[in-house]
Amino acid sequence: MKKMKSILAIMLVSIILLAGCGTGSESSSGSSSAGGNTKPAGSSVSDTSQKGEVHTLKYGFVDQGSGVATGLVGIAKDQGYFEEELAKVNAKIEIIPFTGAGPAINAALASKSLDAGAIGDVPALVAKASGIDTVMVAGGLADAPTYVVAQPGKGYKSLKDLKGKKVATQIGAYMQRVLYLMLENNGLKIDDIQFVNMTAKDAVNALAAKTVDAIVVSAAQSQTLASKGLGELLDSTEGHREWLNSTATVFNASYTKENPEVVKAFIKGLLRAREYAQKNPGDLRALQIKAGTPENVIDLVYPDLKNYSTLVEADKDVIGNLKSVAQFLKDNKLADSVVDIDAWYNPSFYNDALKESDSK
């Protein structure tokens, strides 16, 4: 545990130091914009509109290597909803993929090279607890489970068999919490395994290369490995609703104060995407295929084509889950304080966008 906390502390210090640098983006650039000159992240609409320039909202998402935005963000991008809504407030959006997942997005938010992003509950709350001043404006609760996937043919029957073995997932990502909970459920602690810090993409490659014994990854990645004979599903969050992870759409707090109309326009784009997805779920499926998820895995993980069309509003279940995660991080010494979720989440942007939108 001491080793884990020291690694996490180093990561947090790195994030804070990046805030004084001007860059922190570990990403491949994949932009979706509506024309005009790109301004640095953090600039305001008033600054650009006075000069007749178009303001750019820089938004980051967790990328598994394809550079394709899925879910409602992908729909809003492809259907032109972001372009249309943001144009009304003299703005556009640049959508940037981050293979470094939530921790990399946190670093970019801290350095102000990014204005907003969608990340898992653990990185979002670790960042907030460490002093990165963000505001949550939207969120959702994951329905698809998270799995521990082990090397095939090794005779592993449960997590107990992984004692002393190499288990990989990413520090500061939601999978870290899932691993802690699963280990505890099997009478183990994090110090009982050899923890290996890797991004999900690197962990998948490491399992295939047999350099680690098990990994903790998403349902789609797990089922893909299993379907190819590269891994065996050892344990999951199924049957443990309290273990599910939330996603949070966060903005730099200063950005929401300087550009409230842009934030609201962004959410209007998501609302239109939600309405479209409900009528055209096949387009959600097509985005997953474009992102590299095998069709048989999509049908297995997302049978109703709704699981990855997360709601824009953070309802009571999402808020309750986030409060549980915040307390977990403090109890396990992964955060120095418990984030006040009610103060962190600002529902006014969603509520105002809903009132002004044709999408209900």
Rank of each mutant, 00 (worst) to 15 (best):
I319C: 00
D283E: 12
L86A: 09
V13Y: 00
A129C: 06
N205H: 08
A129Y: 08
K5Q: 15
L181S: 08
A253V: 01
A206T: 06
A104M: 07
H55I: 06
A127M: 12
V212P: 07
T169Q: 12
D358I: 14
L230C: 01
A208Q: 13
E94R: 14
D202V: 14
G282K: 05
K51C: 10
A291T: 02
I119K: 04
G231W: 01
V297Q: 09
K154E: 11
G139I: 04
E84F: 04
S33A: 11
T169S: 12
V13F: 00
K333G: 04
V122H: 02
D358E: 14
L230S: 12
K201A: 15
L230F: 09
K77G: 01
E26A: 15
L162C: 05
P97L: 09
D315Y: 02
S28F: 09
G22V: 13
K51V: 13
P281N: 04
S324T: 14
V216H: 08
C21Q: 11
G117C: 04
Y147K: 10
G231M: 02
A214M: 03
M1G: 12
T211N: 10
V148M: 08
D317H: 13
V250G: 09
T56D: 05
L183S: 02
V73L: 12
E84L: 08
D202H: 04
K58W: 13
T146L: 08
V297R: 09
V126S: 03
N185E: 13
G139A: 11
G42E: 02
G42S: 06
A219C: 04
V263A: 11
I105F: 08
S236D: 07
E85L: 02
G30S: 13
Y81D: 01
D121R: 06
S227T: 12
E53G: 07
A116H: 11
W243F: 10
E94H: 12
Q288S: 10
V250A: 06
Y174C: 02
V149C: 06
A87W: 01
T134Q: 11
V89N: 13
I16S: 11
Y276G: 03
Q50S: 14
K316V: 13
G155I: 06
N332K: 15
V339K: 02
P303M: 04
K166L: 10
A253M: 01
G229N: 05
Y308V: 10
Q327M: 08
I267Q: 01
L57I: 01
G22D: 12
G187H: 10
L284K: 01
I341Y: 05
A277K: 01
A173I: 03
D317F: 12
D121M: 03
T38N: 05
S43T: 15
N37K: 13
D336T: 10
L125C: 07
L354I: 10
F349C: 00
A110Y: 01
G292S: 08
F61E: 06
G140D: 05
G71S: 15
D352A: 15
D192K: 07
L109C: 10
D340F: 03
E53P: 00
E83Q: 15
K290I: 04
Q79C: 01
H240R: 14
K77R: 14
I7P: 00
Q221I: 00
G229S: 09
P123I: 07
S218K: 08
D47H: 04
K360R: 14
